[in-house]
Amino acid sequence: MDNQDKPHVLSYSQLAGVLIILLALTGVTVGVSYVHMGFLNVPIALAIACLKVSFVLLFFMHLKYEGPVIVLSLIGTVSFLMIMIGFTFWDVAFR
């Protein structure tokens, strides 16, 4: 069952660790933006953003400790979002 009645408590040091990682990644993404790599810039910026978002989701939002209902449905939502963007491209990119 997905019943986890005892909530998991994150320690301050864990949270602080995540914060430091996030701040560092922000620094990296700003730094990289000054380097010109042509079309690679956007994918790199987005990859870093995804990494940051995963940290926020997993720790700040407790996703790592949630039951399957939330985890699976979040994956479903994100897939739907990707489909929204991806399938629109079937049109826009080939028009």
Binding site: W90, D91, F94, R95
Partner: peptide, 13 residues
Amino acid sequence: AHHMYTSGMSDVS
């Protein structure tokens, strides 16, 4: 997008 075949979207779509 099957509501949009005549809208002028791409044939790939």
